Each structure stands twice: as C-alpha cells, then as structure tokens.
Amino acid sequence: MMKEKIMLFCWAMAISFVGTLPLGTLNLSVANYAFRHDASGAIGFSVAAISVEMLLVRVALVAIKRLERLTNFFRVFGILTSIILLILAFNSLVAAWQMQTFRAGLPFTLLNPMISGFLLSLTNPLHLPFWLGWTAFLRSKKILTDRSGSYNLYIIAIGAGTSAAFCIYGLAGGYLIQLLGSKQVLLNWIVGIALLITAVGQMRNTFFKKWKPAVAYDSNDQ
C-alpha cells in the first residue's frame, strides 16, 4: 500500500514539475515578480495559480467518467477561454509593436497578484486536457485508483510539483529576466504569438472536435 502511494506521488509530482518547466505566461509571471523583488507577490500569485490547477484536476477526476455528458460545458468553457486568450495575445502583441517592456506584455500585471494568478491559471486552456490525458493514462496503468485517498494524494503531489517548478523560476527567474533584458520586445512577441496560437488551437478544438474519453474503461468502473 505504501509503495503504491509513493509511486503515485512521484508520478504525479514529476508530471506536474516537468509540465510546468516550459516557458509560459504563468512561470514568466513568477519570474517577473522575483525580478521586481516582490516575494509576497510571487507567493500570492503562485498560491492562487496552483489552487486553480488543483481544482481543475479535481474536475478532471470527476469528468473522466462523464466526459460525454459534459460536452456543452467544455464548449462554453472553450469559447470563453478563446476570447480571453485572444485579448491577452492582442495585449502582448501591441506591447511588442510599441516596443514596451516585457512586463507590459504580461497579462493582468496591474491586478492584485492573487487575482492575477487566479485569472491567468483559470484561462490556461492546457490545464484540463493535460490532466484529463494523464489521469486517464495513470488510471489505465492502475497507478491511480478510485480510492478517495488516492485522489487526495494525487492532487497534493500535483500541487507540490508545480510549486517546485515555480520555486525554480522564483529563484532563477530574476536572473532569467535580467539575461533577456535586452530582448524584452522579443519576449513580448514570443508570448503574444504563443497566446495567439493557443487561442486558435482552442477555437479549433472547441468548434471542430468532440471531447472523447482518452481511454476505454472496464464497465465495472462506470
């Protein structure tokens, strides 16, 4: 039993940690707070962003068995997310076009850090499909079971993995932003184009694809 829990924790933490490492608006925002020596802002932003991710994982655990029934929810969620992403992409691209600093191209920077972290994490269209896929995979390998204790451990491990990745950006993020200081306009372009591509992909998934379970489950699981 203990061995199974350790394996589940390690798998979930590793997936979350590696999945958070690629450069994106969430970890770049943490780096930006560190660069400004705003430790409380970085912590508040991180806590809010991680809380949303953990909540969405909980949704994924419930939705994985009822995916076909939630088609309308995913469609509405996809439309709202696409609109918000387009606005964020426009904001970053305008900042790049006007050659503003990188901070100006980050979304929600003028809001309270916790509100910023909440909104930015909530509008991240990758959270739900990412964890739906990995949850299905871990269930198919019997690493994640239907026990409520396993679900709680799974969510805690995901929060720990994302926290570890954010800590790296918090500690080294100031150096990263400083290193790229001369390329702040380029960073705005990169973030804006990445957001635009993500928005287009989200719209494509919303209007031209149907949500289907990632794996087939035994009828006893229903």
Rank of each mutant, 00 (worst) to 15 (best):
residue 32 N to V: 02
residue 65 K to I: 03
residue 91 N to A: 03
residue 122 L to I: 10
residue 67 L to N: 02
residue 146 D to A: 13
residue 78 G to T: 05
residue 186 L to A: 15
residue 205 N to Y: 14
residue 122 L to W: 14
residue 207 F to S: 06
residue 74 F to Q: 02
residue 181 G to V: 12
residue 184 Q to E: 15
residue 93 L to T: 02
residue 20 T to I: 04
residue 102 F to K: 01
residue 102 F to C: 03
residue 100 Q to H: 13
residue 83 I to R: 04
residue 92 S to P: 01
residue 102 F to H: 01
residue 186 L to R: 00
residue 27 N to M: 07
residue 161 G to V: 03
residue 182 S to Q: 11
residue 28 L to K: 00
residue 26 L to F: 09
residue 19 G to S: 14
residue 6 I to N: 12
residue 207 F to Y: 11
residue 7 M to A: 11
residue 53 E to Q: 13
residue 89 A to P: 02
residue 14 A to T: 15
residue 107 P to Y: 08
residue 211 W to T: 13
residue 146 D to T: 12
residue 152 N to T: 12
residue 204 R to K: 12
residue 57 V to F: 05
residue 14 A to M: 14
residue 152 N to F: 13
residue 163 S to C: 10
residue 45 F to T: 06
residue 77 F to L: 15
residue 28 L to G: 01
residue 123 T to I: 15
residue 184 Q to F: 14
residue 136 A to H: 03
residue 52 V to D: 03
residue 178 Q to I: 07
residue 13 M to Y: 05
residue 161 G to H: 01
residue 9 F to W: 08
residue 155 I to H: 12
residue 103 R to E: 15
residue 128 L to C: 02
residue 198 T to I: 10
residue 78 G to M: 01
residue 64 I to G: 06
residue 79 I to R: 00
residue 80 L to W: 11
residue 195 L to N: 02
residue 75 R to S: 05
residue 149 G to A: 07
residue 53 E to S: 12
residue 185 V to Y: 05
residue 29 S to L: 03
residue 209 K to T: 13
residue 194 A to H: 01
residue 184 Q to Y: 10
residue 23 L to T: 15
residue 2 M to V: 15
residue 5 K to N: 15
residue 89 A to S: 13
residue 100 Q to L: 11
residue 36 R to N: 11
residue 10 C to G: 12
residue 26 L to E: 09
residue 108 F to D: 04
residue 194 A to M: 14
residue 64 I to S: 14
residue 207 F to A: 04
residue 26 L to Y: 10
residue 142 K to L: 10
residue 2 M to N: 12
residue 93 L to P: 00
residue 75 R to Y: 11
residue 139 R to E: 03
residue 207 F to I: 10
residue 60 A to F: 02
residue 216 A to H: 10
residue 215 V to A: 09
residue 144 L to I: 02
residue 125 P to A: 09
residue 177 I to M: 13
